[in-house]
Simulated scan of single mutants.
Amino acid sequence: MPAPSPAVAIDGLVVHRGGVEVLHGLDLRIPAGSITGLLGPSGCGKTTLMRAIVGTQIVASGTVTVLGEPAGSSLLRDRVGYVTQSPTVYLDLSVRQNIAYFAALYGRPPRSVADAIDALDLADKADVPAGDLSGGQRGRVSLGCALVAEPELLILDEPTVGLDPVLRADLWGRFGDLAAAGTTLLVSSHVMDEAEHCHDLLLMRDGYLLDQLSPAALLEQTRETSLEHAFLTLIREREVQEQS
């Protein structure tokens, strides 16, 4: 039986910003129906890579194929959800109105709005204008606007920033449920302990893809007991290889 097609296939991706090359010939595959963690320090190119997958980033060379279509294709508009680091909500609308607006855009039933609100623990804020919420709460509303569309591919740029540990754990549980139901998730983070929730990891530094492997394989390869130490060990090993 042939292997299933990946949700995202990238070959030789090069991106320039401000005349400087910021992504250096990336090759990777994101398996369908899984949670892939995009991990690395701030400024390493995670957001640029995500923008390239969504189709909002100008690409110097290489190909980005998403759900069998070129990234940015009009055929992907209702199949790909993207949540940016900065919440994108209408400040004069309530939480419920924001999510209901996106539900209507994608033809989702009214019940989906309540489900999204409940899933993100926003029931007590449902009728509060988004402009009166904290930054973390607005981030959850932005995520709800993406979740209610039920996309096949959900791209999340550091969605847990500013959330308390309990809500972070609940949110990762929700991501796991989505993946189990067939949704593909790409989740970026600079917090290595979140990697344990992922099926697969993309490890980036300075615009390069250091490796793609599972959390267990990363620990085994580096002979470390924590994912943070394993990532640091991987970086040191690559630096030694480059100098030799």
Score class of each variant (00 low, 15 high):
Leu218Asn: 05
Leu202Lys: 04
Thr56Glu: 13
Ala126Leu: 13
Pro165Ala: 05
Phe175Arg: 03
Val14Leu: 04
Asp115Leu: 05
Cys198Leu: 00
Ala169Ser: 14
Ala130Phe: 03
Ala71Val: 10
Ser134Lys: 10
Ala100Glu: 13
Tyr106Phe: 11
Val191Phe: 14
Asp121Cys: 09
Thr88Cys: 06
Asp78Met: 05
Gly131Arg: 09
Leu13Ala: 10
Arg17Ala: 13
Pro165His: 10
Pro110Asp: 11
Gly55Met: 08
Ala126His: 11
Cys44Leu: 04
Gly19Asp: 04
Val240Gln: 15
Val240Pro: 00
Ser74Glu: 12
Pro159Ser: 10
Val161Cys: 04
Val161Tyr: 00
His229Trp: 03
Ala60Trp: 09
Gly136Lys: 08
Arg140Asn: 02
Ala3Gln: 09
Ala179Lys: 09
Thr160Ile: 01
Ser34Phe: 00
Ser112Lys: 12
Ser86Pro: 00
Met192Pro: 05
Leu167Val: 01
Ser34Trp: 03
Ser214Arg: 08
Glu69His: 14
Pro159His: 09
Thr56Val: 14
Pro129Arg: 15
Ala195Arg: 06
Leu76His: 03
Val95Glu: 10
Gly55Pro: 10
Pro6Met: 10
Leu143Phe: 07
Gly107Leu: 02
Ala104Cys: 09
Leu28Cys: 11
Asp124Ile: 11
Val89Tyr: 13
Gly72Cys: 12
Pro109Leu: 11
Ala3Leu: 12
Glu242Asn: 11
Arg17Glu: 11
Asp118Thr: 12
Gly135Met: 05
Val22Ile: 12
Arg223Leu: 14
Leu201Arg: 06
Gln221Ser: 15
Leu105Asn: 08
Arg238Phe: 00
Asp164His: 05
Asp211Cys: 11
Gly43Asn: 02
Pro87Gln: 04
Leu28Ile: 04
Asp27His: 12
Arg174Asp: 07
Thr48Trp: 08
His24Lys: 12
Ile117Leu: 10
Ser42Phe: 06
Gln221Ile: 01
Gly40Ser: 06
Leu202Val: 09
His16Trp: 07
Gln137Trp: 08
Glu21Gly: 02
Glu69Gln: 15
Arg238Ile: 04
Ala149Gly: 12
Gly45Asn: 05
Asp92Gln: 13
Gly173Arg: 06
Ala9Arg: 13
Leu49Arg: 02
Gly12Pro: 00
Arg111Asn: 15
Gln137Cys: 03
Gln212His: 15
Pro215Ser: 00
Gln57Ile: 03
Gly144Tyr: 11
Val161His: 02
Leu23Thr: 08
Gly19Cys: 05
Gln85Tyr: 06
Ser226Cys: 04
Asn98Ser: 08
Val8Ser: 06
Thr225Cys: 03
Ala216Arg: 13
Val148Lys: 06
Asp115His: 12
Cys44His: 02
His229Ile: 00
Ile155Pro: 15
Leu91Ser: 15
Gly182Phe: 04
Gly33Met: 06
Val161Ala: 14
Asp170Trp: 01
Asp124Trp: 14
Asp127Ser: 13
Leu26Glu: 01
